[in-house]
């Protein structure tokens, strides 16, 4: 769907993107991660043709990014806004028509979405009379109303209560099921784990991580296993700092060059192995670990 090669962008002397390569396959949810100021917004703006890169190539479905693609992209910026004095309906029509829909088409699609999200009664209200959550929903519909093939969402859940966040999450998954490719930029790692198929992490203008969630997680395994033993037959070594309760004992063990099987058979002599499980890092841990180690270099 989207392929970026050797993209560079700098503002004066500060670099925003350095030799960035990125591949987003069709029909997946792609997590774009990175701390503030890493260059995510610059990348998103370049894909949206708000600004231009200094060098590099961007291809959408194999053809270079051009103004023809504007109607195929939906963009929800992190800092979003609506005309306060405008009515919900007029506003949605305006945004939909700017994306190239005809008056007729815009009307029927907006009606469809308003009904789907139970917002039809707000049609004639002004944005300034809506709650923040309601306005966010209006904004969300405006972003997807033209059925974009590529949807770029920057912190889509901010401003929503848990209930509405759930509704939006379901809509995003629904769009994915219809074949929409989604780029999701967020700091909420739990939604990354829940929604994303692939992730890329950008730090200090460079990509420092890229892959499927599964691959990323497995490559960051600390090679540590958690163990629960019952009915101890033997004292466990002092260095396995353990948590004792009644007659069971819970602790974690590094592999230290052994295979998991060797480790397990070694454990058996101490008692009954109740649980033996590899520690899988959360995306949050990987994120923090990556940024910290990148900062040391």
């Amino acid at each position: 769907m989207l392929k970026i090669e050797k993209l560079n962008k700098s503002y004066g002397s500060s670099r925003a993107l350095t030799d960035l390569d990125l591949y987003v396959p069709k029909g997946i949810i792609f997590g774009l991660l990175g701390p503030n100021g890493a260059g995510k917004t610059t990348l998103i703006r370049i894909i949206n043709q708000i600004i231009e890169g200094d060098s590099g190539e961007i291809l959408i479905d194999g053809s270079p990014l051009s103004s023809d693609h504007i109607s195929q992209i939906g963009y929800l910026p992190e800092e979003r806004g609506l005309y306060k004095k405008m009515k919900v309906w007029d506003q949605m029509i305006y945004f939909a028509r700017l994306k190239g829909l005809s008056q007729q088409e815009a009307k029927s699609r907006i009606n469809h979405w308003l009904q789907k999200l139970e917002m039809s009664s707000w049609k004639d209200k002004k944005i300034e009379d809506l709650s923040k959550g309601m306005a966010q929903k209006v904004q969300f519909i405006s972003t997807i109303v033209h059925n974009p093939a590529l949807l770029i969402l920057d912190e889509p859940f901010s401003g929503f209560d848990p209930l509405n966040a759930e509704i939006i999450k379901d809509e995003i998954l629904g769009l994915k099921a219809q074949g929409t490719t989604v780029i999701l930029s967020t700091h909420r790692m739990e939604s990354v784990e829940l929604l994303c198929d692939r992730v890329a992490m950008i730090h200090k203008s460079r990509k420092i991580l890229d892959g499927t969630i599964k691959d990323v997680k497995s490559s960051f395994r600390p090679e540590v296993f958690t163990v629960t033993l019952e009915n101890l037959t033997q004292e466990i070594p002092q260095e396995w700092i353990a948590k004792m309760s009644d007659n069971s004992c819970h602790f974690s063990l590094p592999l230290n060059g052994k295979t998991p099987n060797e480790l397990l058979s070694g454990l058996m002599q101490y008692g009954q192995v109740k649980q033996f499980e590899e520690v899988i890092p959360s995306m949050e841990e990987i994120f923090i670990h990556q940024i910290k180690s990148a900062n040391y270099e």
Binding site: P77, E79, G81, L82, Y83
Partner: peptide, 11 residues
């Protein structure tokens, strides 16, 4: 009001 970022992604 940050509307402009949405607008310039369309025109």
């Amino acid at each position: 009001s940050r509307i402009v970022e949405i607008l310039v992604s369309s025109l």
